[in-house]
Design a protein around this nucleic acid. Structure first.
Lengths: 232, 232
DNA sequence: ACAAAAGTGTTGGAGATACACCCATGA
DNA sequence: TCATGGGTGTATCTCCAACACTTTTGT
């Protein structure tokens, strides 16, 4: 029988953070602090090792808060990645050598995705990220470890959540127009909707509430604003 | 900053194994080997620590094979459980003390569910299970750790898979009748279907293929048999 | 001939889809 | 007054739900 794994691996959480801005679905990518001989830190998804007394959801929320200073955001575990060869790239190995106590140790990571309203926060530098950038989800660069795979599975999970759990409002500002909402659906699901039919469906949703306010400063007929009310 | 978790936890997989028999959805529950002062081993879901070089899917498949000697079964990761207080029951702590090298160590577990055709296999005693039993999913006894929660989440995942991915055939014999199939859907989804409408829907599925065979030995009109063909 | 489950079509209603024009605003 | 996106209703079609009787076999 092969030796059992006992205390020879690390557990992390990684967090694919989605934002929606000007009709582009974006993902938050951090640039890791470079190790001494490295010119430029590699890009990655934010994540960290789990603390000894911390729940997994708690660790994911902490990573999110360190980076955005926001709490209470939508956060969902969607898959755990634990391939024994997750770290095959040489640069990743070097980085681990510089920043982890046990760099050779196998790491499994529990992946979450979260949704943030991009107008509501400022990115912060955090102790694990040199800087953070939003990138178009269709143009994600090469990322560390298996993070590209994680992003693509997160996107699938997001699509699913949008269709079945109507989580799209988490990505919009407090007050939004129906056109913004429709754009969000079209971009995430990569599908066109008929404007009139789309609006008919939205008007069936009881938790989408029209406000007595209109857009301002636009050079066309201003749109009615709506808000999303949880727990009707 | 709290100390980071590095090598102070274990990772396991747990596997909720579903079978379908005579119109009952069953779950495989093992009785753990009792520790020295214990009369009767506690019941649990099969699982094991992950080996150092083994993928997570591989570990789940291994647990399944040890118990059933079957390979290639349907197997799906559905959630990772990592509450720091997963092991709160005294008996669970004692059991760990007797069977784990580092019993006090926090364990996170990646949960899978799998589907087996109950007529195709024999349960085997395995090194981690004194014996294994099928229990009605509606009458699952108290299980070790957080295994009751794991079973109930597995059932949700199964329902979802049945509705969206048509995985139900994995639970039926190679040759089955439409009534068996309908029973399976009704029991898992806890919902009644109209016989004619149900059959209309099934006949739209290209991978459900009628055979030139009928039931035998039944004391009523024998039903047409069908098979399920993957990858049409 | 009887008991038991198998097998089979039609209709009405709800919900989805397709489609085109007028409106309010700022420049 | 023009350019820009906002906003609205109806006809058709497709899909789903409801519903009951005849058939085949073994005893």
């Amino acid at each position: 029988m092969p030796e059992r794994l006992s205390g020879v691996l690390d557990v992390s959480v990684d967090n694919v953070i989605f934002g929606f801005d000007e009709n582009i679905l974006k993902v938050l990518v951090i640039e890791r602090k470079p190790f001494p001989d490295e010119k430029k830190g590699m890009s990655a998804i934010p994540g960290d090792l789990v603390y000894p007394k911390e729940s997994l959801d708690g660790a994911a929320a902490r990573v999110l808060k360190d980076l955005t200073s926001l709490e209470g955001l939508f956060l969902k575990q969607f898959h755990t990645f634990g391939d024994p060869n997750r770290v095959k790239d040489l640069k990743d190995q070097e980085w681990l050598t510089n920043f982890r106590i046990n760099p050779e140790r196998r790491v499994i990571t529990i992946a979450y995705y979260s949704l943030i309203k991009m107008d509501e926060y400022q990115l912060l530098p955090s102790y694990f990220a040199e800087k953070a950038d939003w990138v178009d989800v269709l143009e994600v660069p090469d990322l560390a470890f298996d993070h590209n795979e994680i992003v693509s599975k997160a996107l699938e999970a997001l699509r699913h959540g949008l269709e079945v759990d109507q989580i799209g409002f988490e990505l919009l500002p407090e007050k939004f127009t129906l056109t913004q909402l429709q754009n969000l659906y079209e971009i995430i699901l990569d599908k066109k909707f008929d404007k009139r039919n789309f609006r008919k469906n939205i008007k069936k949703m009881e938790h989408v509430i029209p406000l007595n306010e209109k857009q301002e400063g636009v050079l066309h007929k201003p749109a009615q604003l709506f808000k999303f009310e949880k727990d009707v």
